Amino acid sequence: MWIVRQYQETGRFFRKKLLKLFLILCICFAGLCVLSGIWLASEEALLNEFVQQIAAGFEEKRLFDEGGISFFTLLLNNLYAVGISILIGCIPFFFLTILPFFSNVVVLGAMGALYQTTGIGMGAFLIGILPHGILELPALLVSFALGLYLCWSLSYKICLQRERSFRQALKEAGRVYLLVVVPLLLAAAVIETYVTPALMGLFLGV
């Protein structure tokens, strides 16, 4: 079947070109989230400023409606964000994808620090993050890996003037986005919209 072949090709590409970078990003992301959370927990004024900026960003993107999280708005926002993280990799030499990587690190670190310093606790934070995060975070990290891979591929081609097909790299990145990132974000959006709020309500006794 065509779709099976596409997933097979995607798997080969991921193992050969992205796996090591993906694992490095996973380790760095986890470590930096913990470190940023510890640091922000000790800087109350800075933490409050970050939290206000995060809340303003949510409001600007209209992620919430009267009934809670807006599923379609959340999904479209996430698809757009990861798409941009990949596409800015088409700008050579600067590796701009590292900017949304660090942005997400700060957001998670700040939210963790907020839950800890306000006494809500890390248990509630993990309940609020893990159900959808086990799908959304890998999707984000794959998109960051794709953006960095594209930037490296184009920079390599420009510097060494080798007959290296950047068009093929774009094709592979697009296939990973459609077959891996989009389904993960779709499932994560369903969980974040309908499951995570219920679990938080049970945990907090609301």
Rank of each mutant, 00 (worst) to 15 (best):
I120A: 14
K20M: 13
Y149N: 08
Q6S: 14
E44Y: 07
F29A: 02
C28T: 13
T97I: 05
V176I: 08
L19N: 05
I88K: 04
L146D: 08
H132G: 00
W2H: 09
F58P: 03
L21T: 15
T118G: 00
L141W: 00
L19F: 12
F93A: 12
S42C: 07
I127C: 09
A45D: 14
E9S: 10
L32H: 02
Q161K: 11
L25T: 08
V142K: 08
S143K: 04
Q52G: 12
D65W: 13
F14R: 01
I129Y: 03
F144K: 02
L186T: 06
V206N: 11
L137Q: 04
F71I: 03
M200N: 09
I27S: 10
V82A: 08
T73Y: 09
V182N: 06
F29L: 05
K16W: 01
V176F: 07
N48K: 14
V142T: 11
L96E: 07
F125H: 04
A45F: 02
A187T: 03
I88Q: 02
L114H: 15
E59F: 03
F50A: 10
I127D: 09
V107D: 11
Y177H: 01
E59H: 04
G68M: 03
L79P: 12
L150N: 10
T196I: 10
L130D: 01
S153N: 00
L154A: 03
E192H: 12
L75H: 02
A198G: 04
L108E: 06
A189N: 03
L108A: 14
M1Y: 12
G133P: 03
D65P: 11
W39L: 15
Q161S: 11
A188N: 06
A189K: 04
G128N: 12
